[in-house]
Computed example of a mutant assay.
Amino acid sequence: MRRRTFLQAGVGAGIAATAGCLGVFETRAAGIPPIPENRPDAVYVPSHEEGMAMAGMGTAGDYRFGLMYSFAHRFWNVNGDSVEKTGTESAGQDAVHLMTAVWDPETGLSLPETGMSVDVERDGEVVTQETIYPMLSQVMGFHYGANFELDGDGVYDVTVSVGGMSTRKTGGFEERFTDPASATIEFDYSRQRKDGLSFQVRDDAGEPGALEANTTMMDADSMAPTPADLPGRVVGQGKSNDAVLVTTALDTPPEGVEGDGQYLAVSARTPYNGLVVPAMGLTATVERGSERVFDGELVRTFDPDLGYHYGAAMDGVESGDDVTLSVTTQPQTARHEGYETAFGGLMGGMPDVTFTAE
């Protein structure tokens, strides 16, 4: 049984940058541009945009899985307050970035916090088997990904496995996504097809903004509901290091939430594309004049109508109340280029969001 090296990240700065061909499609052989200089402490347009291709899909239990691939590339891993670029100086010719998504086949909603591992086999022999990173990218939104070195052209059996969703589940999701499951997807890899994927150097690299999202390639919806589509009464919103926190109050908590009264829910999303920002620690205080009517944790929760959000039962929010949202832990997800300086990220810190409830 062979076990090959799992590449902890993508191609580093040792590869020459493309020069003089900004804003046009190039081949991957032209090289990866450097990280933009003077990038903002916020979401920004990355140095380049890579094409990706579908490898296949599978279904097991409550879950639908998808597997995609692209060029191996750099990304930033997050562990607590630590944010580090994960990269090697070079990658082999058959290095790929494998991306997996898992979603509810009934609603299409992407499932964060399942835990994901990937086993890659060829002709019955193990090529690699690893737990891979939860990630945010401007194109795919939330997914799981890492770089792998394959053994050249051929058919691989890729088994994707989840251990069940650790997030609190409410409403129609209360009894679902609790059991582990796995699906094996056949991946017919060709270096020529991989090298033929598009590769665009951006002439607006480093500017505030984002690549256009394309979250429908695997039917996995990682978009947060628009404020107009959120249930309840939207009472306010604000930004914390470019994470947009939209707060709504429901008359009663969803099934699966302990407590009475209203339900305060915060839906966190990226600017520009409105993609879900999961895996934060978040608290809220609600003050009415000199009285503090709520002060506590907003629990990570997954609901068919609210989507992935942070919520708690409370006495109620009235118009004119002062609301403060405090991020206690930045999102514990790796980031593709363009997100590493936002949502805490390399620059650190997510300021409180304060507003007067509408």
Rank of each mutant, 00 (worst) to 15 (best):
M218V: 15
G108D: 02
G10M: 02
E50W: 12
I32F: 12
P208A: 00
T100H: 06
D123A: 13
L109Y: 13
D242N: 10
E358Q: 14
L136W: 07
G238C: 01
R4G: 13
D81W: 08
S166T: 14
G124A: 01
D157H: 11
R3D: 11
P331L: 02
G261K: 06
V299P: 09
P33T: 05
V323P: 02
D119S: 14
G338D: 05
M165I: 09
Q330G: 03
A16K: 12
T283G: 01
C21Y: 12
E37W: 09
M314W: 10
L67Y: 06
G51D: 04
F177W: 07
P331C: 02
P180I: 04
A55K: 01
G152I: 07
S47V: 09
A60V: 07
Y156G: 03
P271I: 10
L250Y: 00
V43F: 10
E255W: 11
F302M: 13
V266A: 09
T333K: 03
M99F: 10
T128E: 11
E258W: 06
H97L: 13
P231V: 07
D41E: 14
Y263L: 06
G66H: 02
G108P: 02
E337K: 07
R193A: 14
Q237W: 09
T5L: 13
D229Y: 00
T341W: 12
V266G: 03
E258L: 09
F187T: 06
L22H: 11
